[in-house]
Design a protein around this nucleic acid. Structure first.
Lengths: 215, 215
DNA sequence: GGCTTGCACGTACGCTGTACGTCCGTCAAT
DNA sequence: ATTGACGGACGTACAGCGTACGTGCAAGCC
């Protein structure tokens, strides 16, 4: 049995595995080394430090986004698809996604999605300033959504425990919360996300800064 | 000099101070104890563990939100005000805000903003389901915005270092990013936030699920 | 007085990230 | 064939972490 030599890619892969299995808190250099059957300090031959390793994880996850962008499709469909593609990584790597959204990358790994999005928005009739504006709006919404979606349930199980316990809410103090506690307690993330995306698309479609008549 | 007795409130306050001064990474039980001039383990008489302490920090920050909600105002103004009030905590406690948004609370401390928001949306003509939907949309946007706003620059300095280095971007690979690099490199968070809020308000104002004619 | 209770504290254990030195296999130059 | 350089794997060591546990002291109650 020839043991494959250690490499940055293998280390990052082991880190992602560990994060998905036991959560980001379980990540330690010692633990990753143990999982790889390797000495702790050997990792430092391929990764400068833990922070860089986590950046590597974020890059790897981000670069897995699959864009099947069809330049001939209507721009609303392209936006929809890109938003969904972004959200898809939350399903493939739920716990690693927290790393991606809570850590901004200084590398170019996250640039491809930005490029695609800007091109789409430009083709939709926005000038540079507004394309960036709208992109940031979408990113804020998507990141916020993923944070709720992944943060609420580390296990990412389809059925969620309630975050609001109906019995503990005083109806006199919080009448609305109390009345809607069953709705607040459960959340169909998929539907919630689609609702937001459609509303945003609708909103920017009629936005005055967009030039009409473009694909 | 009579030293004021230790208390959960003093510990939480010291933690917030420390977070704002040196960042969340600097927080340790030992460090907080040292700042309070107290033994490490004395903290555990008032706080069960570090996680609960951080929850306390999040609660304290969240409960500082000032709502000057005028029930007679137009619902669009009320929504605007509440969104801004939420964002205001990011200016008062920038680094602690990261804790608030990246940690969901199981306590009732965060319930008052939810109650206010739901009441406003109900008065705007949304039924329960849609009020929750719209609230979640707003929360996602606000949380995502704050994450960018605070996460990008831990120091929260008014002027930001560029996240995208124009020279490092290959114009052939990323034409849009390259062309818009100056716009992408700087961000007027205030304007960006207002743009998003106005667009969202506009979008939900014309949403078909809203009953018209309400205040 | 005696007794309970609560709080401040010191010690100790098993973790963490990582700086540093060592050892060994490979390969180029002599 | 010998030597030397070099890169990678590794062990040790250190400072710092959260916190379980035991101890001692002061106040309140009988």
């Amino acid at each position: 049995m020839t043991t494959e030599p250690l490499s940055r890619a293998r280390i990052v892969a082991a880190a992602i595995d560990l994060i998905e299995r036991e959560g980001a808190d379980a990540v330690s250099m010692r633990r990753i080394a143990a999982d790889l059957g390797v000495g702790v300090m050997s990792l430092y031959n391929h990764v400068p430090n833990k922070d860089a390793l986590l950046n590597g994880v974020a890059e790897a996850v981000l670069s897995e986004i699959e864009f099947t962008d069809d330049p001939d499709a209507h721009w609303t469909d392209r936006v929809r698809m890109q938003a969904r593609a972004f959200r898809q990584i939350a399903h493939d790597h739920p716990r690693s996604t927290m790393l991606v959204v809570s850590r901004q990358l200084h590398s170019n790994a996250g640039l491809l999605p930005v490029e695609r999005a800007l091109a789409t928005l430009r083709s939709a009739g926005f000038d540079g300033i507004d394309a960036v504006r709208v992109l940031r709006l979408f990113i804020a919404f998507i990141v916020g959504s993923l944070l709720r979606e992944v943060g609420v349930t580390p296990t990412f199980a389809p059925v969620h425990t309630k975050m609001i316990n109906a019995e503990e809410v005083d109806p006199a103090l919080f009448p609305e919360v109390s009345a809607l506690s069953s709705l607040l307690g459960s959340c169909d993330h998929e539907a919630e996300f689609e609702f937001g995306v459609e509303l945003l698309i609708q909103a920017i479609a009629v936005h005055p800064s967009r030039r009409e008549g473009t694909r």
